[in-house]
Write a protein that binds this DNA or RNA. Sequence first.
DNA 1: TGTACATCAGTGAACGCGCGTTCACTGATGTAC
DNA 2: TGTACATCAGTGAACGCGCGTTCACTGATGTAC
Lengths: 209, 209
Amino acid sequence: MAEDDPNSGRRGYHHGNLREALIAAVKDLIADHGPSGFTFSEAARAAGVSPAAPYRHFKDRDALIADVAEQGFTAFAEHLEIAFEKGGTSPIRAFEAVTRAYLTFAAEERAYFTAMFQAGPPQSAEVKKAGDRAFMVLQRACEGLVRHVPEAKRPPIHMMAYHVWSICHGIAELFGRPGAQSRAPIEAADLLEAGVAIYLRGLGLLPDG
Amino acid sequence: MAEDDPNSGRRGYHHGNLREALIAAVKDLIADHGPSGFTFSEAARAAGVSPAAPYRHFKDRDALIADVAEQGFTAFAEHLEIAFEKGGTSPIRAFEAVTRAYLTFAAEERAYFTAMFQAGPPQSAEVKKAGDRAFMVLQRACEGLVRHVPEAKRPPIHMMAYHVWSICHGIAELFGRPGAQSRAPIEAADLLEAGVAIYLRGLGLLPDG
DNA sequence: TGTACATCAGTGAACGCGCGTTCACTGATGTAC
DNA sequence: TGTACATCAGTGAACGCGCGTTCACTGATGTAC
């Protein structure tokens, strides 16, 4: 009931939704200036509010970034879940869609990705939890692939998930951002597809050749 | 002849080797406070010099960090080269030594690694060149493995090198630093060894099973 | 429905601080003769 | 070997600035009766 102006912004003395507005502002600032290229005051200014206002919602700059990271991990998890479901009943299609989605998120949501992975060590429990949710999608995608493999030949599922995560992440970090592409004459997405295929073949999950 | 005091430091009015001293100081600062957790003045203070002195050697903070990154890539390349040579005449041993060395460097030289990969986009030509030198070691390690494979089955060498780089880098970023290990119940080094083995098997470079 | 009051979520002025940067300077070093 | 001078690599004082943080305050909102 308090939210009846959807394209809101300010509504007078009270902002209405400053907390979310600050997070959105910081996301933009990170996109433009990197994870540390802004100050607490700048965040307030970007949200159109006095420099003291953010203290009502965040202890300090790090708490703000942590919330951006948490929101980023949640968006990431949803992004991966959607890709997973698009695979429908085909485990291999679902799997490949998830790995592709990893890259597209990293490329298209650079600000979130930066907050999630570059913003220092102070990982709160909430951030970890949101991160785990994203990781679980990867793991489920692996499980789907592995389910029909004879148990004796089945790789430890969490190991496999960590591997896939690492490949996706490595490619995203090294080749998945603007400016980095000059390093590789291959598209990041193609590089990932080929790498994952080789890995799956190594597990005996794809036919040879 | 100017360097006759090896454990030098200050020698009076003139520092003697301020440029290197600043780089070393910044390396320590990055290790302690992250890539952006220090100021130009702090770097000067850490080197025992007035805040104006660094301007004789560096245009600004970014130039300083760029030099740390360059020095880091050079040290990285040397670290990988040493590992490569330790493999002796065995291509597979050389290859595995190089991938392991990737991880140990990331873990033991966290400050360098941070400057190399986390410090924003302003990658100078010198930094790129030093980075390429490190990458070439990886590529040579791949070439050694692949040389005796029938040409028809031989994977594109640079693709393979990018894959290996990505796996190493992803694991280093996600699991290779203190604080992150809680995420994976597996040692980063074991995770890497297993992942690389699976990948090589997928290429037909290792026997099955 | 109206009123009184508590609480919430902002303001804006103020403070001390350290930063980046400049400047004229000066001590140390190197070199030509 | 000595001297004069140019150059190099620092000093330290100064500046304006924006930051983080606090504080008493006030306008808006929600709720009990």
